[in-house]
Design a protein around this nucleic acid. Sequence first.
DNA 1: CAGTTACGCTACGACTCGTAGCGAAAGCCC
DNA 2: GGGCTTTCGCTACGAGTCGTAGCGTAACTG
Lengths: 213, 213
Amino acid sequence: MSTRTGPEGMHQGRTGRPRSLAADAAILAATREALVDVGWSRLTMSDVAARAGVAKTTLYRRWPGRNELVVDAVAVLFDELELPDLGSLPADVESVVRQFGALLERPEAKTALMAVIAEATRDEALRQRIRTAIVERQKRLVVAGRRRAEERGEIPPPPDAETASRDTDLIFDVVAGAVVHRTLVSAERVDADWARRLTELILTGLSARRTGG
Amino acid sequence: MSTRTGPEGMHQGRTGRPRSLAADAAILAATREALVDVGWSRLTMSDVAARAGVAKTTLYRRWPGRNELVVDAVAVLFDELELPDLGSLPADVESVVRQFGALLERPEAKTALMAVIAEATRDEALRQRIRTAIVERQKRLVVAGRRRAEERGEIPPPPDAETASRDTDLIFDVVAGAVVHRTLVSAERVDADWARRLTELILTGLSARRTGG
DNA sequence: CAGTTACGCTACGACTCGTAGCGAAAGCCC
DNA sequence: GGGCTTTCGCTACGAGTCGTAGCGTAACTG
């Protein structure tokens, strides 16, 4: 698959002993476990290797370093998010907001996400990895929600592809950013009431803007 | 001042040689400089000490560790944000959005902010430090903007103190979260157009919600 | 079978950590 | 001034981590 985010440098399409897929899974699970236990700054490769039951060298054969390993270990968590068809745009949006809030309450998700973002500010390759492994992947939720709302007649189709794309980006930044900020910076829970108020704010803002010019 | 965020454990109200204020400033400046040069994960106390021209022990006499040092080194950057009276609420909000966007483009700000937030997910004391040193401090912008808009008659006064407080929190999370997400996760600039569109989204959302019930 | 690659294990130099001890410096109070 | 207290820069230390290299073995291909 083209958006494969797993370990790199694999030559296993060739001859020789193939890499253990079980080791892959064990390492990623061990990384998440270690993140919960010791956090980011105290997470060591030796620790992860020991938890996974593999040698430290096996980690370095697959990932260049901690940062890349953690990105991959956490990216799969975001794939759990889905957009159930609840019959209306507000209900759909609120559902995703609450799912995302619940996801960010899991220690391994919040710790790892912020840590890798911090590292990415000085590492273009890592930034790219985050973008393909997480960000672009999850924009599917916004795109699907808009398409579904259009089909229901809740929102008008976008005037052109350019504004559609920019709106998608804006919505994504606002929703994801607000949830992240609420959870990690303000350190408060994303409860049903907050999710409803955020959804209301965004949707009325969008619809009023459209109809008002 | 009561919200002093500087080094702790100072007994300098007593007798003996007082701590060098110049060393304080030099250390914080050196920390920001090191963040720009080497990033977060490779920032070492020895490096900071060398840049500041002080001994490593001097750092540990004032701060418990890297995390606390970095919070203090970065907190002052956020005090630069201000709310100029531009005559209308949209103009005021857009101004702060752009200021915040510009601030987060500075390497020391973005790197340090995300890094300490990541660490804070497993450190209650650090979380508290961030909250008092940065978050609660900057909510002043939202509070001032609302008060000013009320005086202008642009928005109605809040029905009660409870909803006023929750609205302040929501607005803060949405605005700050969106800017942070745009800058650090999506890795795109907060330009004039984006700031205008975000402002429009939020303000129409808020006003429509109020008038519409 | 031979060839190739991944595996676990051990060992290594380099680096950072946080602390301790030292003598000197810089301020207070009498 | 003298005495007291605290900070200063400096050096040294054990502990821990890093990322790599080398080894013999295991697993799969043709």
